[in-house]
């Protein structure tokens, strides 16, 4: 059984009075195995953000199902969704989404506090994660005092601290300079090596080329996918950009 199964997912947005209907997702099908690092690529408007929102249980699908560990969370009640999300999913956002009123440490603790863990357990958990992400010495600082790269690493730490089944990352390098992007990507790779499943939405070829598999979405459907196989990052990069060129010039499905 796959860790994440997405079946016939469909999402239709309608305007307020039901006039215009926009089909953001037509029919999306894919699976993610445990320990995989999957990138989802697509142009803006292709539906990748909608897809991620549905996977994150922030939005609900019009039709189809999403199964995490065999459990269909579109059937959960609203009160259960938040708990489910907290216990099973970790998030990394483009804009970091750190709270400016909390220190870095408290930001990382936030999901654990919401899950009613005690402070001793939290402080034990944070140590190895902070060390691995290289943020041990900025834990006491506030978001406005640290760099973008450090903020994003703090956000990764916040995602990791609950031991989620899967990490969902939405354009994690979008707001970073190239050096910080590289650092973050190699960090993702490392984290993935320890067995952590990651699903990342991006339109950066560089970011996508770190993954073990790349899915392409176009017009609300999974259009194509590339497995890394034994390719190096550079080889995968080449394959991805070829695919994108083909997508943009309107090539047919292989």
């Amino acid at each position: 059984m796959s860790l994440l199964e997405v079946k016939n997912l469909k999402k239709v947005y309608s305007t307020r009075f039901g006039g215009n209907k926009v089909e953001a997702l037509k029919n999306v099908n894919f699976t993610v195995e445990e320990g995989e690092f999957v990138s989802i690529m697509g142009e803006s408007g292709s539906g990748k953000t909608t897809l991620l929102n549905i996977l994150a249980a922030l939005d609900s699908a019009t039709a189809g199902s999403v199964l995490l560990d065999g459990k269909d969370f579109s059937k959960l009640k609203e009160t259960e969704v938040a708990t489910f999300r907290r216990d099973n999913l970790g998030f990394v956002f483009q804009e970091f989404n750190l709270l400016d009123t909390f220190s870095i440490e408290d930001n990382i603790y936030l999901p654990l506090v919401l899950a009613d863990r005690n402070h001793k357990e939290m402080s034990e958990k944070i140590k190895p994660i902070a060390q691995r992400l290289g943020i041990s010495d900025i834990l006491k600082k506030y978001p406005y005092e640290v760099s973008g790269g450090q903020k994003q690493r703090a956000a990764v730490a916040r995602a990791l601290i609950t031991n989620p089944k899967i990490i969902l990352a939405d354009e994690p390098t979008g707001a970073l300079d190239s050096k910080s992007s590289d650092e973050l990507l190699s960090l993702f790779k490392e984290v993935n090596k320890t067995g952590q499943t990651i699903l990342m939405v991006t339109h950066s070829v560089k970011a996508a080329s770190v993954a073990s598999r790349v899915l392409f979405i176009k017009d609300g459907e999974v259009f194509h996918q590339i497995y890394r196989g034994d390719d190096t990052n550079e080889q995968l990069y080449q394959k991805i950009s070829d695919t994108l060129t083909m997508l943009q010039t309107g090539g047919e499905r292989k």
């Binding site: 922030l58 609203e78 938040a82 708990t83 907290r86 956002f93 709270l99 899950a115």
Partner: peptide, 15 residues
């Protein structure tokens, strides 16, 4: 903005 972040991180509407 603050509460929308917290929602994303796993706070329920009731919380």
């Amino acid at each position: 903005a603050r509460f929308s972040i917290m929602k994303k991180v796993g706070m329920t509407g009731r919380n």
